[in-house]
C-alpha cells in the first residue's frame, strides 16, 4: 500500500444532520433514494429499447457480445444496488414546483442528499475543481450539482434527475448553419446532415448504442440545454410537430445503416432513439445542438408530496 496522503478518499461518516422524521430529513432521504435509483436502475423504457437492440445483432459477433454484457450489467446493477456506470456523471436536477415553493432550503437538502449518496457509493467522487484539479470528494462545488427550478401550476413537486457521464458529454456537439464543409443549409435537411455527422464523429466513444437529444435554434447556451432536456422525454415519445417526428424516425433508421454499432465495434444498432425540438433563433444564427446520451441512460423522476416530502411515485 502506498503511503497515506493528506486527503482520505473514502469517508464513511454520514454528514446528514437533521431532526429525524422531520420533513427536512424526509426530503433528504427521498432525494438520496432518487439518486440511488437513478444511478443503479435503468429506466423501463430504456431497458426495453436495449433488449430489443440486443436481439438484432448477429450472433457470435463482438457487437452481440457487447449487447449481452450491457444487458447483464443492467441486471447486476439493479440487484446489487450499485452504479450502472462508474462515471456517475454530472448531476443534473430539474425541479418542477408549485407557486410559493421555497427554493433555498431545497437546494440545501439537495446538497446534503448528494453528499450522503456519494458516501454510500451511489455517486463516484466526481466533482473536480477545473483550475486546481482538487476533488473534494463531495460532488459539491462551483456549478455542481446543476439545479434548475421551474414553476408549474400543479400542486405536486416533481424532481427529475439525470446523471450524464463524461464520455457521452464529450461527443455531444453543436453546429452553426450553414456548414459549408457538410453542405448543410438552414433547413431540416441541413439539420439532418449535421446530426448524422455528429453520430459518425462520435463513433463508439459515447458508449453507444446512444440516444440523441437535438435542439434546432436558440442561442448556444439555451440550445444545448434544451437538447439535453429532450432526454427527459420517454423513448418513442415522438415530437408533436409532424415534420420533426418524421425526422426523428428517419435519423434513427439512417444512423443504424452507418455500421458503427454497439461500442463502435461495427454492427446494426448505433442509435436507439432521437428526440428533437426547436427554439426560436435570431435571424443571424441557426444553431443545432446534439446532446448524446450513452446506453447507460440514467434519468429518473420522483413525484414528492410537498407536506411530508415523501415519494409518491416514480415518473419513469
Amino acid at each position: 500500500m502506498a503511503k497515506k496522503t493528506k486527503k482520505k478518499v473514502v469517508k464513511k461518516k454520514s454528514t446528514v444532520k437533521t431532526k429525524k422524521g422531520s420533513p427536512d430529513q424526509q426530503a433528504i432521504e427521498t432525494l438520496v433514494e432518487l439518486i440511488r435509483v437513478t444511478s443503479t436502475v435503468i429506466p423501463a423504457d430504456v431497458d426495453r429499447a436495449i433488449e430489443k437492440a440486443k436481439g438484432v445483432e448477429k450472433p457470435n459477433t463482438t457487437a452481440a457480445y457487447a449487447m449481452n454484457i450491457i444487458s447483464d450489467n443492467i441486471g447486476l446493477a439493479k440487484t446489487k444496488s450499485q452504479p450502472l456506470c462508474q462515471d456517475t456523471g454530472t448531476v443534473v436536477f430539474y425541479i418542477y414546483h408549485p407557486p410559493g415553493f421555497h427554493q433555498t432550503p431545497f437546494i440545501k437538502q439537495i446538497h446534503k442528499a448528494v453528499t450522503a449518496a456519494t458516501k454510500k457509493g451511489y455517486l463516484r467522487e466526481n466533482s473536480v475543481n477545473s483550475l486546481t484539479g482538487e476533488n473534494a470528494g463531495t460532488n459539491l462545488g462551483a456549478g455542481h450539482p446543476s439545479i434548475h427550478f421551474v414553476e408549474h401550476s400543479a400542486k405536486t413537486l416533481e424532481v427529475k434527475l439525470m446523471l450524464k457521464g463524461g464520455g457521452c458529454e464529450n461527443v455531444s456537439t453543436q453546429y452553426s448553419l450553414p456548414d459549408t464543409g457538410l453542405s448543410a443549409g438552414r433547413d431540416l435537411d441541413g439539420v439532418r446532415k449535421v446530426v448524422l455527422d455528429a453520430v459518425v464523429k462520435a463513433q463508439g466513444k459515447g458508449c453507444g448504442p446512444g440516444v440523441l437529444g437535438v435542439c434546432i435554434g436558440g442561442d448556444r447556451a439555451d440550445s444545448h440545454a434544451h437538447a439535453k432536456k429532450q432526454l427527459f422525454r420517454k423513448m418513442g415519445e415522438r415530437s408533436k410537430i409532424k415534420e420533426l417526428a418524421a425526422l426523428e424516425v428517419e435519423i434513427v433508421e439512417t444512423c443504424n445503416k452507418l455500421g458503427i454499432g454497439p461500442m463502435g465495434f461495427g454492427g446494426t444498432t448505433t442509435i436507439l432513439e432521437c428526440l428533437m425540438d426547436h427554439r426560436n433563433r435570431v435571424p443571424a444564427s441557426f444553431i443545432v445542438s446534439v446532446s448524446y446520451m450513452c446506453w447507460a441512460f440514467r434519468r429518473q423522476g420522483a413525484v414528492i408530496d410537498t407536506k411530508t416530502m415523501k415519494l409518491k411515485k416514480w415518473l419513469y
Binding site: 454484457i69 450489467n73 447486476l76 450499485q82 462508474q86 458508449c207
Partner: peptide, 10 residues
C-alpha cells in the same frame, strides 16, 4: 464494454 461497471467490477 463501456458503461458495464458492474459486470467488470465483479
Amino acid at each position: 464494454i463501456g458503461g458495464a461497471a458492474q459486470v467488470l467490477a465483479e
